[in-house]
C-alpha cells in the first residue's frame, strides 16, 4: 500500500468520524429540544438501552434469528435473480414469459406481499420469503441489463478465437457485468433487511427483532424501539461491509487465478 493511499484512507475515516459525530450532535440537540424521552430518546439513553439489551441472551437469540432469516432470503434471492437474468438474457421467449413476473413483483406494495404470504406460509418463514421477493427482481434486472450491454466486439473476438464458453465468461462477461452485479447485490442487501424486518413486525414470528420492535411500540418503550432499530442498522451495515470485503477478496483471487 502506498503512502498516498494510506493518507487518503485516513482522511476518509476522519471525515466519516466527523460526519458521525455531527449527526449524533443533531440527534442530541433535537432530543433536548423535544424534551420528552418518550417521543425522542437521546443518543446516550439509546446507547444505554442497547448496552443493557446486549447483556441478555434473548437479545442475541432474536438478533441471530433475524440475521439468519434475512440471510436465507437474500442469498436465495441472489441465486434466483442470477438464474432469471441469465435465462432471460439468453432467450427472448423466456424474457417475454418471465418479465411480467418481475414487473408485478417490483410494482406490488411490500405490505400486500407480507399479508398474502402470511396466508400462504408459516409466519416464521415470511421474512425470508419477503427478502427473497425484494432481492430477486433487483439482481435480475441489473444483471440482465449488464449481460445485454456486454461489448459485442469482444464477444466477436471470443468467437473468432474459439475461446469456448467458460473462457468467454471469464474474459468477456465477468469483467463486464461484475461492477453492476456487485452494486446490485449491495443495494438489495439493504432492501432485504428493510423488507425482512417489516415482515417480522407484521407477522410476529417468535424470537425476532421485528417482534421486539412491535412490543417496544405497544409498551411505549421508545428507547427500546431506537435501540432495536440501531441493532438492525448495525447488522445491516456490518453484513454489507462483510459482503463487500468477501466480494473484493473473491474478485482479487479470481484476477490472480
Amino acid at each position: 500500500m502506498t503512502a498516498s493511499t494510506t493518507k487518503n484512507k485516513g482522511k476518509r475515516l476522519l471525515f466519516s468520524l466527523i460526519a458521525c459525530l455531527f449527526w449524533l450532535g443533531v440527534w442530541e440537540l433535537a432530543s433536548l429540544a423535544v424534551g420528552k424521552e418518550l417521543l425522542l430518546p437521546s443518543p446516550r439513553r439509546t446507547a444505554v438501552r442497547l448496552y443493557t439489551l446486549a447483556g441478555t441472551s434473548s437479545f442475541w437469540i432474536s438478533a441471530g434469528t433475524s440475521l439468519l432469516r434475512i440471510a436465507v432470503g437474500f442469498l436465495s434471492g441472489v441465486a434466483a435473480g442470477t438464474l432469471f437474468a441469465v435465462l432471460t438474457a439468453a432467450s427472448r421467449f423466456l424474457d417475454s414469459l418471465l418479465s411480467p413476473l418481475g414487473t408485478v413483483v417490483r410494482a406490488t406494495p411490500v405490505a400486500s406481499f407480507i399479508l398474502l404470504a402470511l396466508v400462504w406460509i408459516q409466519a416464521s418463514n415470511v421474512p425470508s420469503f419477503i427478502s427473497f421477493l425484494m432481492v430477486t427482481p433487483i439482481v435480475w434486472s441489473a444483471l440482465k441489463t449488464a449481460i445485454l450491454n456486454t461489448d459485442r466486439q469482444l464477444l466477436e473476438a471470443a468467437k473468432v478465437y474459439r475461446l469456448g464458453r467458460l473462457k468467454t465468461v471469464r474474459a468477456v462477461f465477468l469483467p463486464s457485468v461484475l461492477p453492476t452485479y456487485t452494486a446490485s447485490l449491495l443495494t438489495s442487501l439493504g432492501l432485504a433487511w428493510k423488507s425482512g424486518i417489516a415482515a417480522e413486525v407484521l407477522c410476529h414470528p417468535r424470537q425476532s427483532i421485528g417482534i421486539e420492535l412491535y412490543e417496544s411500540k405497544i409498551y411505549l418503550e421508545t428507547a427500546d424501539l431506537f435501540a432495536w432499530t440501531a441493532t438492525v442498522v448495525l447488522l445491516s451495515v456490518g453484513m454489507e461491509a462483510l459482503f463487500a470485503l468477501l466480494l473484493k477478496r473473491t474478485l482479487a483471487k479470481g484476477e490472480r487465478a
Partner: peptide
Amino acid sequence: GPVVYLFQEPRLFPAF
C-alpha cells in the same frame, strides 16, 4: 479450419 481474423481494432480482453 477456423479463420484467423485480426480485427481493425485490437479488441483485447480488458481484464487480462
